[in-house]
Amino acid sequence: MFSKTLHISTSPHIRQGMSTDMIMRNVVYAMLPLVVFSVVSFGLNALLVIITAVASSVLTEHALCRWSGKSSTVSDWSAVITGILLGLTLPPIFPLWMTFLGGVVSIAIGKFVFGGLGSNAFNPALVGRAFLQAAFPVAITTWHPSFLEGRFYSISKSVAAFPFSTPVVDGISGATPLSAFKFDKVTADTADLAFGFISGSTGETSAVLIILGGIYLAVRKMMNWRIPVAILTTVFVLSWILHIIDNQVYPSPEFMLFSGGLMLGAVFMATDMVGSPITPRGVVVYGVFIGLIVVVIRIWGGLPEGVMYAILLGNALTPHIDNLIRPRVYGTKKTKS
């Protein structure tokens, strides 16, 4: 009896059952409504952009793993997230060849060189996005109006631009609410902003869907809710104060909150676990810092939008936050760093 060899493990012998690939998968689920909405509002173009971003991220991850003689880590789903996030931050008529390049840069420079998942100091998708912003500043600020007639069966010339060639913008281009405000002091209707009847990146337009996705993740404990809350609160409070000081110069807090990539960034990018602090208090500092930089860049900077830069800066600051803010260990006096 009982001839089988026993399985030996060290304690604890039970696990909560959450696993990293499961978290990653759920983040993908939480973003799917955004993908669907962006296809609904921007049509085939947005779909192609997102698919290309995902494909290039996954392919790059696979290729690099192979090249360096490791087994492929595609199955942990993190490359898929990077791809979707990258796709969601690009304009709907962004050329596919540039999108593909962005995916390669995201994974290669944003993740692989750092040692892969868990070591990437910066959000890979944002590294790719920042690269594209610097490389192709015109294409990445060429926006497209949403809910155009015929969007489901036509592909923009710009999207289909031949690799390495300059995209040609056909038809109308639209300004994002933020650039409209920055340059012409025109603010958009808050309801339009919240529900996504505006121009912008493929995934940033519908604040409501982003929040719903965030709530899903927060409830399933797969996202640190403190991060978006800290960022959004900071942006709201700061812009509210400024708005009170001079409501002609400074936009309303709700405009600040719902426009641009703030929601998407706060909910899906700043919350990237690898690049954010690990302690609850550290996370709040991180969120407040990002919110502050967003407001500074949007209000006083030369660019209409600063969420991407704010999060990358937050990522760079994270090691220091973790280093400086450590919880007091049980039974010890206040620890110094």
């Binding site: 660019l303 991407m308 990358l312």
Partner: peptide, 19 residues
């Protein structure tokens, strides 16, 4: 150098500050 490049990209966010 790659990190420096990423930081350099990040600091581009400050361009135009104060304009």
């Amino acid at each position: 150098l790659l990190i420096a490049g990423i930081l350099s990209l990040t600091f581009m966010g400050f361009s135009g500050l104060g304009s």
